[in-house]
């Protein structure tokens, strides 16, 4: 039973949560048309390319999901506002 739970858990971790994926894709679609993004050594991408990479769950897609989800977490736990408020005062 324990082994099955562990297998199930690791299966979840390997595949992106579908809700997270849809959320990130939706948020990407709010980026203004006519913009592209340079991501590390991977190169330049239009927003529609990013949405496709998120859908494919490849390294680029995972990277975008990580950036967006980390932002949302930092927003929720107040870390982002702490940082920008601190930088405003110094």
């Amino acid at each position: 039973m324990k082994e099955n739970k562990e297998k199930k858990k690791s299966g979840k971790e390997e595949k992106m949560d579908s809700d997270v994926k849809e959320l990130v894709k939706m948020r990407l679609s709010t980026i203004p048309k006519g913009l592209s993004v340079s991501i590390g050594s991977w190169g330049n991408f239009k927003v529609e390319d990013l949405i496709r990479h998120v859908e494919m769950e490849d390294e680029i897609g995972k990277s975008i999901v990580e950036i967006d989800m980390e932002f949302l977490r930092d927003l929720k736990n107040g870390k982002l506002y702490e940082q920008i408020a601190f930088d405003n005062q110094t």
Binding site: I31, G34, L35, S36, V37, S38, S41, N44, K46
Partner: peptide
């Protein structure tokens, strides 16, 4: 981690004017 930045496609040939 990766440094990420956005660009305005209409400013590619005049990058110095790219406000994004």
């Amino acid at each position: 981690r990766n440094f990420v930045f956005f660009t305005d496609d209409s400013k590619i040939s005049r990058s110095e004017n790219d406000k994004v």
